[in-house]
């Protein structure tokens, strides 16, 4: 029960951050990616802020023997830079550039009620299924096998 409450809490803070930073605005994301056009560098600050805060927080947190609510930390174990990592990330980059949505903001933006994000999320979920079927459960995730990536 507590795990669900904190999942809701973390998701909410995450979603608030995405909305405030306008990651939920595809035009803004594409303006960031459009380096040769009317470039808007704002989103560097989103990633910068998120990485700096989590970099220091993770260092403190991972000194603990275990998380508060679960027996152990679930962290990625893979180290190899393989074809799947490179090819999958390239494919994701193309999708992100085309639509201006990545997974978190796409889901958050469902709150705005626009058909565009519903269509994108439906296609993304179809993509999850396709990847799962094609690779027949061989997918390793950087969020550890059963954790988040």
């Amino acid at each position: 029960m507590l795990k669900n409450i904190f999942a809701l809490g973390a998701g909410s803070v995450f979603g608030l951050g995405l909305a405030l930073s306008q990651m939920t605005n595809p035009a803004k994301v594409q303006a960031f990616l459009d380096v040769v056009g009317a470039w808007d560098p704002s989103l560097i600050f989103v990633m910068g802020g998120a990485v700096v805060v989590s970099f220091f927080a993770f260092r403190v947190i991972l000194r603990r023997p275990a998380p508060v609510l679960t027996p152990g930390f679930l962290l990625p174990t893979m180290k190899d830079i393989d074809k799947r990592l490179v090819g999958g990330s390239a494919l994701f980059g193309i999708g992100w550039g085309l639509a201006g949505f990545c997974p978190g903001p796409a889901i958050s933006s469902l709150a705005f009620g626009h058909w565009q994000s519903y269509l994108f999320v439906a296609a993304m979920v179809a993509g999850f299924w396709i990847a799962r079927i094609v690779s027949q459960g061989t997918i390793e995730s950087d969020g550890a096998q059963e954790a988040a990536a």
């Binding site: 999958g88 639509a99 949505f101 993509g127 999850f128 990847a131 799962r132 997918i139």
Partner: peptide
């Protein structure tokens, strides 16, 4: 875009 994002993030093991 959605399809590529779904497939790519699964194969690549993560997103943004």
């Amino acid at each position: 875009g959605g399809l590529w994002t779904g497939i790519g993030t699964r194969i690549g093991g993560g997103c943004t």
